[in-house]
């Protein structure tokens, strides 16, 4: 797993209070990890803070899974 993926995973675990083994690439924040709409807003803010990237609202709306977040950040930092 990439460094970015590890850091994303840690943020998700901390914010959603879920077990590490559930935080897999295809896991949906809302459907699989118990987040509500406010949790997802806060997650996106935490990603922005951690990686120093800006995630516009329309892009945030398309980040639904752990893998989506990793891909967006990798691209933004490339």
């Amino acid at each position: 797993m990439s460094d970015i993926a590890e850091r994303v995973k840690k943020i998700v675990i901390d914010h959603l209070g879920v077990d590490a083994d559930k935080v897999v690439e295809g896991a949906s924040f809302i459907d699989d990890l118990g987040a509500d709409s406010l949790d997802t807003v806060e997650l996106v803010m935490a990603f922005e803070e951690e990686f120093g990237v800006e995630i516009p609202d329309d892009a945030a709306d398309s980040i639904l899974t752990v893998g989506d977040a990793v891909k967006f950040i990798e691209k933004a930092q490339a």
């Binding site: 406010l38 807003v41 806060e42 803010m45 922005e48 803070e49 800006e54």
Partner: peptide, 10 residues
Amino acid sequence: PRRISPFFIP
């Protein structure tokens, strides 16, 4: 303002 948590108010 982009760093104000959605949980700030509730």
